[in-house]
Simulated scan of single mutants.
Amino acid sequence: MFPPRHRIGAALLIALAATLATACAASTPPSTQPSETTASTPTTPAPEPTPTVSAAPEPGEDPTCETLIGADVVADFESIGWSAQAEKFYLGDVELAHGIQCVWADFEGPAGDHLQLFGWAPIESDQAGEAQTALVGQGWIREESEAGVYITEPKETTIAVDDEGYGMTYLFGAGWVKLADTKQGLLLIEWPAA
């Protein structure tokens, strides 16, 4: 069982996803074509936008709370006064070396359960199989997909869920495992970096 500090209000994740979707859905104004009766006035072309360059991690570098998720998500969290606390990544009672678990919240504000949890760790295939078996034995739900194997906490113990009813979820891939407080939250993890 996971401590309550690892749980989240799903509404915050949904609101964050909606904010990100709205910010990314910038519309382009329709271009105006001069008519035969309109004289065109020479204008100075607008300067080309400078692409934002984020500090990409070096190959072989371990993730940090700021590189585990997208830079735009980090910026959104920081804009509402949130910061991250890095913790060791545990899968049950086993600490996974070179892994990280990040709790994002307003640690300066009043205590509460409004937080986000993201984690990633490298894992050997035999260790992943043992962990999946142990979690399923505790009532967690196993689902296979093209992305990997999802292991989600049982609905009876879930405090916060995403739009599809999933609470805390692990995603096991080839040589790694991800963790988020909801299955949809796994989509925000962008590690390993390309």
Results as ranks from 00 to 15, higher is better:
Ser145His: 09
His6Asp: 00
Glu61Asp: 12
Ile159Ala: 12
Leu135Ile: 01
Ala180Trp: 09
Arg7Pro: 00
Gln101Met: 09
Ala55His: 02
Pro122Arg: 05
Trp140Arg: 00
Val53Thr: 07
Ser54Ala: 06
Ala75Leu: 11
Thr32Glu: 15
Val149Gly: 08
Trp104Cys: 04
Phe2Ile: 00
Ala39Gln: 12
Gly70Leu: 07
Leu68Arg: 04
Gly9Met: 05
Phe118Glu: 09
Ala23Gln: 07
Met1Thr: 04
Cys65Lys: 01
Pro30Met: 11
Ile159Arg: 09
Cys102Thr: 05
Gly70Arg: 03
Glu156Thr: 02
Pro110Leu: 15
Gly139Ile: 02
His114Gln: 13
Pro192Arg: 01
Gly112Gln: 02
Asp106Cys: 05
Ala160Lys: 00
Leu20Asp: 04
Trp176Ile: 01
Glu61Arg: 01
Thr41Val: 15
Ser79Glu: 14
Tyr170Leu: 03
Trp176Pro: 02
Ala111Ile: 02
Ser27Gly: 11
Leu20His: 02
Thr52Arg: 00
Pro47Ser: 12
Ser79Arg: 02
Ala46Cys: 06
Thr133Tyr: 08
Phe89Lys: 08
Lys88His: 12
Gln127Arg: 08
Thr133Glu: 15
Pro59Ala: 06
Ala86Trp: 08
Pro30Leu: 11
Thr158Lys: 02
Ile141Ser: 09
Ala134Thr: 09
Gly148Glu: 12
Leu117Tyr: 06
Gln138Tyr: 01
Glu164Lys: 00
Ser40Phe: 08
Phe172Cys: 06
Gly165Ile: 02
Trp82Val: 05
Glu87Met: 11
Ile8Trp: 14
Gly9Val: 04
His98Pro: 04
Glu58Lys: 12
Asp162Trp: 09
Glu108Arg: 07
Val161Arg: 10
Gly148Met: 10
Pro30Phe: 10
Ala111Arg: 14
Ala11Tyr: 05
Asp72Ala: 06
Asp162Met: 11
Leu135Met: 11
Gly137Pro: 12
Phe77Glu: 08
Ser79Thr: 04
Ile100His: 10
Gly92Ser: 09
Ala105Ser: 13
Leu68Val: 04
Gln85Lys: 15
Asp162Pro: 11
Gln184Asp: 04
Ala46Glu: 11
Gly99Phe: 09
Glu144Gln: 12
Ala105Leu: 06
Pro47Gly: 02
Val149Arg: 10
Pro45Ala: 10
Leu96Phe: 12
